[in-house]
Each structure stands twice: as C-alpha cells, then as structure tokens.
Write a protein that binds this DNA or RNA. Structure first.
Lengths: 203, 203
DNA sequence: CCAAAAGTGTTGCCGGTACACCCATGG
DNA sequence: CCATGGGTGTACCGGCAACACTTTTGG
C-alpha cells in the first residue's frame, strides 16, 4: 500500500481509490496491491506509484508494516509513502483517468482503518521535513522560496516566518540560488532556487 | 526476526543464534521464526523475545521490513528490535541454556546479510537514545547516574561529559531522584534515580 | 594515605523565534 | 495609485559543549 501525498492549492492532499469490489465496496482506500513474483517490496511500491501518477523519480520510502487492519483481515501490509509534485503527474497521466486526490484535512472514514496509516504517514512526513530535504519531490526543479514556504506550511499546518524560513533553508544548505529569476504576475522578479541534493540528506 | 540488544561490561551486545540447519548451517544469525496462525506481528516478536531471554516487559519496536536477504531468499522479513537488561534475563533463563551474546564491535559476517539489519538497528537505537527514554529497558528500576551514563556511552560509542549528561537527563525530566542512596565499594554513597516513564516518550 | 567514584557551576556559542518595513511591478 | 508579493536585520532566549576541583569511603 502506498500513501501518495501532493500539495495542491496550499493544502496537503492524498491520493485515494474508490473500491470497486467487496469488501468495503464504494469506500475510499489507499492504493495497494499484491506483490508480483520476483518483485521487491520497493519495486512493487514504485510500480504502484507509477500506475497511479505516471511518475517514478520521486521520494518513496517504507513507512511501516501493519497487520490486522480491519476486522476479518489477517494479512500483513507493508506500506510505503511517496511525495509527488502535481505538475509532474500531468506529463504522463494527462489523457488517462486522473485518480482523485483528497484534502487530508477533510477526510472522513476510510476502508480498512486506512486512517491509521494516513495519520502515521503524516506524522513521519512532518518529522522528516524538519531535518531532511524530502520536499524536493513536491516542487519543480526551480522554484521561489515563497512557493517552497507554502509547501512547508501546508504540511506542517501552521504559518511560518518568512525571514526565519529563508535563513534556515539557505543557511543550512538545503537549497541554493540558481542565479535565474522569474517574473510572475504583479510583482518584481523573484530569485529561483533549487535543492542542493535529491537524496534524503540528513543534516 | 528480532534484534535483541543488551549492554554488558560497558559494551553493546546482541543476541545471536547459531544456525543448526541449512541453509547457512553453523553461521550466526539473528533469532527469528514464522508467524503462527492468528498471531500478530508484535505478538510474534514478543514471543520470540520471551523464548530467548525470558523477559517480556521491555522496549520492543518494529524496525523495518526487509526482502531479498541473501541470495536465493525471496521472502520478506519483518524485523523488530528490543532492549533488555541482562540482570533481568537471569530470572527466568537461569537454569536453561543461555543464548550467547556477542559484542557488536567484534562481529564478522553473519548469515543472510544480517549485518545490514544489525547496522540499521544500531543506528535507530542511537537516534532514539537522543530524544526518548528507551534506555529504561537496559537498566534496573533504580540506578546511579554513572551507571546510566555507561549505558549511553556504550551505545553511542563515545565518552560523555558527566555534568552535561546529568543536567540533561535530570533537567529534561527523563529521570528523577528516588531519595534513596546506594553504597557500593570504595566510594561515598550514590543517589539512586529512576525513569519518570516507561513509555517511548518523545521530548 | 591512596585509589575510586560522586558530586557540583560558569562561560561561550549557536540555532530558533519574534518582529516591521521598503521596493518593484502590473493593472 | 494601489494591490501584490519579494526581499531584508536585529535582539532575546534556551540548549549544548567545554572545562577542574572537592568529598567520601574502603582497603
């Protein structure tokens, strides 16, 4: 099972599938599936992610292994979580059916106690945001610091101070200036930044 | 599979089993086994832990789910790690066979790439030590701060400053004074401390 | 009297947080 | 001319690391 997060319109969203078959038919659930013969766990998670979003070069990490989700379910479920920039998903999934994303804040009950998984994934994401550069996967290659700050705020669920935020991400070497600027709408051009690394770097 | 850590003579040790059957007969490996019908993952890990050490009320947490350990092995392995105070293991395992513990520092190759698991467990342990009170499981109920410091030093692999260590664990409320003292050997009596909580408290 | 361990304060540095104003542009 | 968003500096506070000497006791 894979928890696929995106940030959309300043809110954190998760990709859900409406179950077509029993049990829990008609309810929303996280996308999942069975391991194919000869496939690794990470490989299966990546495949599932590519199936749903069309992207593959993103942050994807094992989350936890659950068992006894729901009532009768005795199976164990290895979960992963991924971070995807919405803009990139369109590239391959544009013409096909777009799986619906849902605001995390507005969710009700999901099938198979998937809320537990989602809550855990959210917590891990919040934590990782503080010491790593995982957000690279939620932004285009070049971006303005304000845009980046929006992503952080969406995930943490609180507003941040602009100057402190800039000092931190630049000062600690998470991102670097590209030298290029962008002119967007009714304001002066903004410096574009990029991540110094795409690895889950630890500070 | 369970990684069972203890601290012995100022060194970090891990409990290993010598494989009696092929494959990898005669090599050292982490204790493990199959899930019994109707058993939860956490339950199975706890059972395995009790089998080997006789203790049950200790820190035990899921570590990671591996797959493709070793060459031909296609199975996936859910690993846990546990922390055990040596003194407590004797209570139940005294008369029976004592599974051998090995200094982590002195290990060579293990069966099934178990080194990877062990290395990962060590890293997690080091990290958790910094923000949680997991060490409660490696010490008797009451202990001197010097003894506690030895445990921390054994795990972190470096010596710590006595005054800074005391300030931190007392000041941040990880441990509290009991009011009782202990007179041990050729020195003045030492205050005994205890953990304020046995939960994996996060600061 | 000596070895062994317990106990105790101060200082400097750094990272985190709080806080307010000016500037360039497009409409 | 005004609305929008970009950009910038300072002051306080708390945690963290470095650092050395005195006391008690058992042998």
């Amino acid at each position: 099972m894979v928890v696929i997060f995106t940030v959309e319109q300043d809110g954190l969203s998760v990709l859900l599938i409406e179950r077509a078959a029993p049990p829990c038919r008609g309810q929303w659930a996280l996308p999942g599936g069975l391991l194919r013969p000869g496939e690794s766990l990470q490989g299966a998670a990546g495949r599932k992610l590519a199936d749903e979003t069309g992207v593959s070069d993103v942050f994807l990490e094992q989350l936890y292994t659950f068992d006894r989700l729901g009532e009768g379910q005795a199976d164990t479920v290895v979960t992963y979580f991924a971070l995807v920039d919405i803009a990139r998903t369109r590239l391959r999934a544009e013409l096909e059916w777009q799986p619906p994303r849902h605001r995390v804040r507005e969710l009700e009950r999901l099938a198979f106690e998937n809320e537990r998984i989602l809550a855990y994934a959210q917590e891990r994401l919040r934590n990782k945001l503080e010491y790593t550069n995982v957000a690279y996967s939620l932004l285009p290659r070049r971006f303005t610091l304000t845009r980046m700050q929006r992503v952080y705020e969406a995930i943490l669920g609180e507003t941040l101070d602009k100057r402190n935020f800039r000092r931190r991400v630049v000062g600690l070497g998470i991102v670097r200036e590209t030298g290029q600027t962008e002119k967007t709408g009714a304001h002066r051009p903004a410096m574009l930044y990029e991540f110094t690394s795409r690895e889950p770097m630890i500070l």
